[in-house]
Structures are given as C-alpha cells and as structure tokens.
Design a protein around this nucleic acid. Structure first.
Lengths: 342, 342
DNA sequence: ATTAGCACTCAATATTAGCGAGTGCTAATA
DNA sequence: TATTAGCACTCGCTAATATTGAGTGCTAAT
C-alpha cells in the first residue's frame, strides 16, 4: 500500500464517501465545494488525475466524474476509515432482539434477520459443523406405536430432532432406560466416534435393544449427511435488500446477481476461509476468486464458543460502495455476541 | 358461467394456452394456423371480437392481439382444462425427495422447496396452529449448570426445543423424575389448558419442583407467542422463481411484487380461508381482496391429519398465466402426501 | 357463412438533436 | 512554482421524431 499525501487522502476520502451515498460518479466541482482545503476545481482535477494514475479511482467514461476502484476502497478501509463504535443504545437493541432461548439454528437465523434489518445488506452465516461436535445427550420419546423421536443435543447448542420408525412397540419406560444407558456411553464423543463404540457394544449385549441401536446408527448417518448438506450449513438472509441498491436497479443486473448466488459453494468457500481466523476480514470487488459479480464486497468475522469446539463465521454481502463505517462494527459486534451465547 | 359454442371454446383455449407459453398477446393469424377447425384469420377475428364482448379476453391496446381476462382463466379452468394426472415417475420423485424423518416444520419446508423446484412458482404453507394442539410429551435435558433444554412434542408432529435458565443446578436424574411426573399430567392437553392445571398443582405440592415449574409456565407463554408469530406459522418459498416470469421483467413490477409480499397478513388470510375446506381452490387475478397485484393467481389445498386435529393449507402463487394443468395436480398431490405423513 | 383485401392503429424500435455535467489543456496569476 | 480561470471538447442522458410491422375492423366478393 503506497503512502499518500494528506491532500490526496482527503480527496480520495471525499470521493468514496460521496459515492457511497449517491452511487454517482463524483466531479471535481463537488469536491472543491465540500473540501476543507480550499482549492479550486481545477486543482482538484489535477489531484484526481494523479489518483487515477495510481489506480485508486477511475472514470466510467471520458469526462465523467470519478468512481472508486477496488484498490481505492481497500486503501480507504485500511488507512482512512475510522469505524464508529456501536452506541450503547444500538447494543441494547441488538441484545434485546436476539432471543437466546432456542437452539443454535434459531439463534443464527435471528442474527441473520437482525443483521438484514439493520444493515440493509445481505447477511450470511456458516453454522458450526456438527459432524465433529460432541454429543452431550440423547433421548428417546415415544410418539406412537411404531415411531419414536430421537433428540440429540450437541455441544455448542445444536439440537437435532429425528423421527425413526421401529420394528416393534417400545414402551416409554423401556425407552427411558435405554436413554440412560446410552447417555452413559456417549458422554462427550462425536457421532463419528460413537458409531464405532456402539457397534462394538452391540456384540457384547444382544438383546431387544439391538434393533433399536441399528435404528440409531442409521440415524447418525442421516444427521451426518444432513449436516454436510448445504441447507443446514449455510444460512442466507434476504436478498431483497440488495435489490434496493442502485447498482442493481436494472433487470439484467438483478439477474446476474441471482445467478451469482445460485451456487452456494463459492460463498461457503469464502466463509470457510475466514472461519479459522480471528477478527474482521473484508473482500472487495473481484478480490476473491468469486469474480462473477464485480461491485460486491463481503465483510466477514468468525465466531467461536469460549471452549473452542464449535465455530463458524458470519458475513455481510453488499455493494462495494457499502457503508463500511457502520457495517463493519455491526458484523463485529454480532460475531462477538454469538461467541458469548453459544 | 355462460355456455360457449364448441368453436368459441376452442379459440379461447388456444389463446390461453398460447398466452401461458409466450406471455404475448395472441393474434388471429396464429390461431388460424394452429386451430383444427380450418378457419381463416378473418373468421377467427369475428370469434375473438365476440369472446371479447363476453369478457373472456381483451386487447391491451387497440389492434394488438388478445390476452385472457380473469374470467377467461376462470372459464378455462372450470370448463376446458383437463388436469393431467401426475405420472407414477413423478410421484416416485416427490415421495423420495421428501425425507419424513424430522419434525413437521422440516417436512413443510421440504415440501415448499420441492414445490418451488418443480413448479417454478412461489409456494406458501400455513402450518397447523400449535397453541391449541395437544401436548404429547415433555422432557427435560440438562445442558449445563444453569441451563436445561425442554423438548415438547405436540400432536401432529411438532417438536419445540426451548432452552431455559434455572435458578439452581438440577441433576439429570432429578430432571428425569420431573419429566415422568409431568408426563403423567399433560397427557393430551393443550398448553392453554395445562397452564391452569399446573398452576393448581403447584399449590398442593410446594417443593424444589416449584421454581422449575415457573420456568415451564413461562416457557409455555414463549411457545405460544412464537407460534402466533407469523414466522413460525406462514412459510414462504423462494420468490426468485416469480422474477423469471416475463410479466415481472421490469424493475417497477418487481418492486411492486416485493411490496405485495411484504405484509404476510393478506396471504395468511387467504390460506386460512381455504384451511377449513376440502380440495383445490383457485384465486385468479384480482379475484381476492388482495388486489395489490393484478396478474397473480393462487392455487391452494388444505391438508389435515387423519385424526383431524392438526391441519393447515398449502398454496402456490404464480402469474395468472401459470401452467394450471401441471400446477394443480402438483399442489393437490403434495397436500395429500402431507395428510398421509402428519 | 366465410374470406380476401385494404386502410388504419399503435407499440416497439431506431434515429436524430440538444443539453449539460465534467473533463484536460493552456495561459494567466499570485 | 503552485494555483486557477477560461475554453474547447467529450459523451451519456433525454426528448422529439421517423420508421416499422403486427394485428385489427370493416367491406365487398365468394
């Protein structure tokens, strides 16, 4: 990152912040009017020409105003931007609108909807992987003659409900006995580990419990598959907000936007990248390999429970000209909040 | 519904079916070419003029082709359309892609996503109300020192997970005891009824159970509120499919479409209307009081468990020129399928 | 009763003209 | 030497205008 003259920084800053608001190319006359260093439009034009040479801004066409480039935004975020801290009032609002009396999926969805509402961009969340998470508790609940509900509680607050069909009519008392027995075994093992353990135990202990266990093992596989399934892994917030942005105000652009999100894998890759790392990460424009859509930026932050087992990451997708000063601390705060409650 | 000459019916049919495919006004020349009764364009024009007089079609502007009106569609659906039956292969596909080993919410979401995929319109589902549904089973699972998970199973397959904070450290054994005790009480009562029953029992039986019960009662209220909350009541599928339809191919239209769905209450009203009734219902264009969006149709069907307690309805929103021949049996079949599995 | 022929209408598309915001360059100024 | 006023020039945007063509209604002939 090249060093920039104070004057240059100020002009770049004005261009970016104005462009963030209006989405229109910014001209020299406007800057001259707003700028604290009292310069004429002509002087500003010289500075702009220089900034363009360095690659921070460009003209969409000859003799239009200037628009920030990806490196322009990057410089702005790294060297100029001072993110505002979230006000206590806003913190209060966030905390109060997240109802933490539910399993983690619900909480994550709440976080997404909240972030969607307050940021007006498109939030995404990567849930912790359950396949490797430890199982804390398992419980069988009789539904009717041949169906029972298996409730599995994982570390990190995940609750999975599964209905399995049985070959005979178990009594609830019997099931409770099995629950207790199993809970002795599972304590703190992942379902991958348990598959082996349980299978070994079956050989020792062939009783009516046997076929039930088979059902459970089959069930473990189901949970495993479902978790690796994208739908239970990546949560995407409302796309609608993005459509309000002027860069997507025509049909073709909207179409290309929809296309870009069709394949979740690229988004997942992006979030998995940041899942390991601490703090905020920002991807600007075609920075990523995900260059389908120019003009989009992604702010991400990872979250992780204090004990360190369950982690994921949260992101916010918006136009490159998104309001970083507000969006960054929001993502940051919500990520921290998630750390606290899972 | 007025009777129509065979010839008139055929022309109307061709107009509608062509319009469903192309979304463009249909001209006399085209009909003359396709039509089995070999008539010249001029004759067709006479018929068309007559059909327009009766209100089944209209011209968007002078000397354009003809477009069906709401009554045109209505006549078509009631008197002309022969819905294709779903092929065995399709039935197989539907059945196999609905994984019924989950609670009812998951199943309903699966149904929505499936319907969205195969129909390319926008599915909606009204879930059964849980407030009045009977509670079958309640179970406490210890998570950590001060948090426990309450699992409530309702008739109809609803499972609600709630995390509640307790004032002291309950042991799992203790909790299991309470579970058993409570399950004796709750058997087949709604949570509304239970609130009264439990409160009465507290007076008789003041022990350490007391504060836990308070938590549960509070929890009942939470469930109640959450259920009456729209988000857990009306499920809406992806809107994106609708945007592909040519009638929404410009920005203004998309905006108005988004606006129309912003307020869920109108959709809920519509679905609640049909929830009581048997069979398929079709709302065309501005048929409903929900006239915000002309040009939309809704196909609905109710579902109900065999025992009759839990019921809701499922719908499919598309442009008025939707492919009824395919869409109607799909909605119908999925509704029936839901009846079978809840 | 049907149809060929024709004048007419009107959306959609292409063409042109004019405006104006904004530029780069040059020469004058502090 | 740094800054600025002046000016010719560019080019997207908008509105006005012309052109096209699909489709019509009516009339007269079959």
């Amino acid at each position: 990152m090249e060093e920039l003259n104070e004057r240059y920084r100020e002009v770049l800053c004005y261009i970016i912040e104005e462009y963030i608001i209006t989405a229109n190319p910014v001209g020299s006359k406007f800057i001259a009017g707003k700028c604290s260093l009292n310069l004429s439009p002509a002087s500003i034009r010289n500075i702009m020409a220089s900034l363009e040479e360095k690659g921070y801004i460009y003209q969409p066409y000859f003799s239009a105003g200037r628009v920030p480039t990806s490196s322009g935004y990057k410089f702005y975020i790294n060297s100029i931007l001072k993110t505002k801290k979230i006000s206590k009032q806003q913190k209060e609002e966030i905390r109060s609108s997240l109802n933490i009396s539910g399993d983690i999926k619900k909480i994550l969805w709440q976080a997404i909807n909240l972030l969607s509402e307050i940021s007006h961009y498109m939030p995404i969340v990567l849930a912790p992987k359950r396949t490797y998470a430890n199982l804390l508790h398992i419980e069988f609940i009789k539904l009717d003659k041949l169906n029972l509900l298996v409730v599995m509680v994982f570390e990190g607050g995940f609750v999975e409900n599964k209905i399995i069909s049985t070959d005979r009519d178990y009594k609830q008392v019997e099931l409770s006995k099995y629950s207790i027995k199993l809970n002795g075994i599972i304590n703190g093992h992942s379902i991958d580990e348990l598959k082996d353990t349980i299978i070994k135990d079956i050989d020792k202990d062939r009783e009516s419990f046997f076929s039930l266990l088979n059902g459970i093992i089959f069930n473990f596989d189901l949970v495993k598959n479902e978790v690796d399934n994208e739908n239970d892994y990546l949560f995407i917030g409302s796309r609608m907000n993005l459509f309000d942005e002027p860069e997507f105000s025509n049909y073709e652009k909207i179409k290309s936007l929809i296309k870009a999100f069709e394949d979740k894998r690229t988004i997942i890759k992006l979030l998995e990248l940041t899942k390991q790392k601490e703090g905020i990460h920002i991807f600007i424009g075609s920075d990523t390999e995900w260059s389908d859509i120019n003009g989009l930026s992604v702010i991400t932050a990872s979250y992780r429970s204090k004990k360190g087992f369950a982690g994921g990451s949260i992101g916010l997708i918006g136009p490159s000209r998104m309001n970083y000063a507000l969006a960054i601390p929001m993502v940051n705060y919500i990520a921290k909040f998630l750390c606290d409650i899972i």
